[in-house]
Write a protein that binds this DNA or RNA. Structure first.
Lengths: 343, 343
DNA sequence: TTGTAAGCGTTATCAA
DNA sequence: TTGATAACGCTTACAA
């Protein structure tokens, strides 16, 4: 086997356009045209080319196509965490829309770290992702600069913002939390505890807490800071938070958990401790995920259209990449208070 | 602005190596070297180059690098579904290992369809993914041919197989199901129902059912086909299956649900119908996910090291890509019977 | 309808 | 240590 000496990149070993062309006795460009716009190639040539493609098992090299077209057909998506099921349905919906348009999803999880988000998004840009989808609306300044310099379409998801980078699909977490808290007040609850995530660099978390605070104020209820708990995002976090709340607030009659992990964790803790729900303590959750609706008793919660967020975000990306104008650039997908048994 | 006429691909508008080189007054190749192996460039040149990179905000183009190096640094992963949380921890672990080695995960979900799996894997190969990770060990013949022709490293995950395509990380679902069923028998149960997925083209599902059947036979217990239920992968599927089982088997004293959705669905249905668990009916699950361990009563189940599967699979891929020999090529990560309250 | 030449942004090879 | 040249696999612009 005489190794052919070459300069530059080494041959890949795969079947190339050139090989197909040789077999079909046409120029490479003709094969290219047969694939891209078959109408511009004679029927005979097309037949020979199709046969050659079938015979060789040729698969076009998207890397080479990307280099010349400046399009990779890849959309980078950064989520805070893969493990938490919250984002699964969003990702699934995005993936489906993208695949329908022959685009591919690049996934990265930031672990709720803005620095990681920046690093991942940077890697996506280095790979020339055609567009980026980010979770939440808080980002490092460097990432904002990077994005504006790159000029790629960006969709922020989850929370609405007054100053979007580009496009936004989300909802007002503040209003949703406000409404749910008001609902508890209307049901006659007066001492309402709160469980949520740490608010630092997480607008979704801080907005929900802010909504809770505003609702209490609007209802003329006192706010007891000791009843506002920031917990780790685990079932145990919810259980532990509930124990703390019961200790601190003897008169506690309701808990608003701004995430299903905490709500379910708190509910299960109540079952274990014999605290009757909702008779002695009402519980409200957020997200309507996991088995919220199937628990005994089923959980009252805020439903967010996760799949729709993914679908719309992907659709906006696709539209923009097709050169279509996207309007409006901010989409409010809303939310819904789901009244079940726990509150 | 005199538009420069070019042939071939249009310029991308981003800062190129060439731009940095001009600014640093060196040849492009020198900039390349400064980035790839700084030791091969003089200190002065390096300083000027670093300054030029900082000034321009240059980011290397991985698409161009991929074309010449024949490496994309991307690993394609096909899972049956993103929505089911089963795969989340596997994906998260893989993603972490890959990122540590500057590789990127390409994700696609097949919806449990072998044809879709083939299509997605094909798309990954067109993008020149450096390696592929597949779920389960059943694939279309065309995919097998495609993979062998492409010659990329492949890791199959989830189930062990006697005839791997290349590498495998998994466990014997048959033995796991056998052991769990035996455990139920040892606890004195005689009429044991089974809930699982449709077995067509899903070795994981058929192996679990086979393990259940073998355990009954080995225990000298009769097998009642009417107590073997294939249900849709939803909580409701588990609830409905349980109702069916209770109707069909008046003497039913245990249920083995070969997946947590069904186990949890069945357990919740018992709570709703006042069927005491485990006093009147024992329930065993599979996967130890969702809130299995936190339910009241907590679920007896089979634990699978999902994260380890992801970690090992990614590590095998990385090792292979680094040219290291991977041995053994089949890794059995095992399983564990977790004895909790429901059985 | 088909083909030629050039170029996408980078790196391997060889020469200085 | 640095640089000129060609090549990775493909498509655009132009010509025939």
């Amino acid at each position: 086997m005489a190794e052919v000496r070459t300069r530059g990149g080494r041959p890949s070993g795969r079947v190339r356009l050139k090989d197909v062309a040789r077999l079909a006795a046409v120029a490479p460009i003709t094969v290219s045209r047969a694939l891209q716009s078959p109408g511009r190639v004679s029927a005979e040539a097309r037949l020979r080319i199709d046969a050659a493609i079938a015979a060789t098992g040729y698969v076009p090299d998207l890397v080479a196509q990307s280099l010349v077209s400046n399009r990779t057909g890849m959309v980078g998506v950064v989520i805070p965490t893969i493990v938490d099921s919250i984002y699964a349905s969003t990702i699934a919906a995005m993936s489906e829309v993208l695949r329908a348009h022959r685009a591919q999803l690049l996934l990265g999880d930031s672990g709720y770290s803005l620095a990681e988000e920046e690093a991942i998004a940077g890697a996506f840009l280095a790979r020339r992702a055609d567009a980026l989808v980010l979770s939440t609306v808080a980002h490092t300044d460097r990432l904002r600069r990077l994005l504006s310099r790159a000029g790629v379409p960006v969709v922020e998801t989850g929370n609405l913002t007054a100053e979007p980078i580009d496009m936004v699909v989300g909802l007002s977490n503040e209003r949703a939390a406000f409404d749910m808290t008001r609902y508890l007040v209307e049901r006659g609850h007066r001492a309402i505890g709160f469980i949520g995530a740490e608010t630092g660099g997480n607008p979704q978390a801080s907005d929900r807490q802010a909504g809770y605070r505003r609702a209490l104020a609007a209802s003329g209820l006192p706010l007891d800071e000791r009843l506002v708990i920031e917990a780790p995002r685990e079932l145990d976090g919810g259980s532990a938070a509930l124990r703390t709340l019961l200790e601190r607030g003897p008169g506690l009659d309701a808990v608003f958990a701004a995430g299903e992990v905490w709500a379910v964790g708190a509910l299960l803790e109540c079952l274990r401790r014999g605290v009757t729900v909702p008779a002695r303590l009402a519980i409200a959750g957020f997200n309507d995920e996991m088995i919220a609706g199937q628990l005994v008793p089923p959980l009252t919660t805020v439903r967010i259209p996760r799949a729709e967020i993914g679908r719309r975000a992907a659709q906006m990306v696709v539209d923009r990449l097709r050169g279509r104008a996207v309007a409006p650039t901010t989409v409010d997908v809303g939310y819904e208070i789901v009244r079940r048994a726990t509150a």
